[in-house]
């Protein structure tokens, strides 16, 4: 019975893969055929043209700023949403409503939000910030609410049993349990948002992505490779710093 089910699973998985491979025109032959062109592409990217370092740096800085502002606004906006999306805080009707809404809106990625906001408020970093806020708020609210649901009621009860006021119970029983987690989630999303903000420029929403796209379109590969190197440096620096801080929080 169990082995029969296992083999059915394997067969279904294999069939799904073969069907998708066929439909997506997966072809080893075409890949091998393309190899010389890929090599040529890489060769033309070298050596990088460092004369564009200034604009690449400005783009990277703007990407960083979009991620900082977007993540910070989302971290605060997600607070009330997190509480009303927590089963142990909100009444059932509210909880189910907010959870479903969050799940639905989370299906839309940052880049798609960016397309929408560029159309709404025009080109530049501002629609980029709005896009980061929109997606990050939804995902942080979900993470916050799960942390709120997992809170240990014991310390809360103990603080309250000492004759503390409601605010004191919140400050000493609840906040110490939640704050490190909230900060950790927010930093983690900040790391992801640097990557997300790096491609916002493709749709006109500011940041380093604009330069990547422009130089690639102009076939200026040495300039494009400089921009990519700057992006890699930015992502690595942010990941390193942020994960260091997160480690110390737990």
């Amino acid at each position: 019975m169990r082995t029969a089910r296992r083999w059915t699973g394997v067969a279904v998985g294999l069939a799904l893969f073969l069907w998708s491979a066929w439909e997506t025109e997966l072809s080893l032959f075409r890949m091998v055929e393309g190899l010389p062109y890929m090599a040529d592409f890489l060769r033309r990217m070298f050596p990088p043209d460092f004369s564009v370092l200034g604009s690449a740096g400005r783009g990277a800085l703007q990407t960083l700023q979009i991620a900082v502002v977007g993540t910070a606004v989302a971290a605060v906006a997600a607070l009330p949403l997190g509480f009303v999306a927590a089963r142990n805080v909100a009444p059932a009707w509210l909880f189910y409503g907010v959870r479903s809404l969050l799940n639905a809106l989370r299906a839309i990625d940052t880049l798609v939000y960016a397309l929408f906001f560029v159309a709404a408020v025009g080109l530049g970093p501002f629609p980029g910030v709005l896009a980061v806020v929109a997606y990050t708020t939804m995902i942080l609210a979900k993470l916050y609410s799960e942390a709120i649901e997992a809170i240990d009621p014991g310390p809360v009860e103990a603080v309250s049993a000492a004759g503390a006021t409601r605010l004191q119970v919140l400050r000493f029983g609840v906040v110490p349990q939640l704050l490190p987690l909230f900060i950790s989630f927010t930093l983690y999303r900040f790391e992801t948002n640097i990557r997300a903000a790096a491609i916002l420029g493709f749709v006109g929403a500011g940041g380093i992505g604009f330069y990547i796209q422009t130089y690639l379109r102009m076939l200026n590969y040495p300039a494009a490779s400089t921009v990519l190197l700057v992006l890699i440096a930015l992502v690595m620096a942010v990941d390193f710093t942020s994960s260091r801080i997160r480690q110390r929080l737990v």
Partner: peptide, 11 residues
């Protein structure tokens, strides 16, 4: 009040 599980604030 002293609890069976201590109920200290861990961190």
């Amino acid at each position: 009040f002293v609890f069976q599980q201590f109920n200290l604030i861990k961190r």
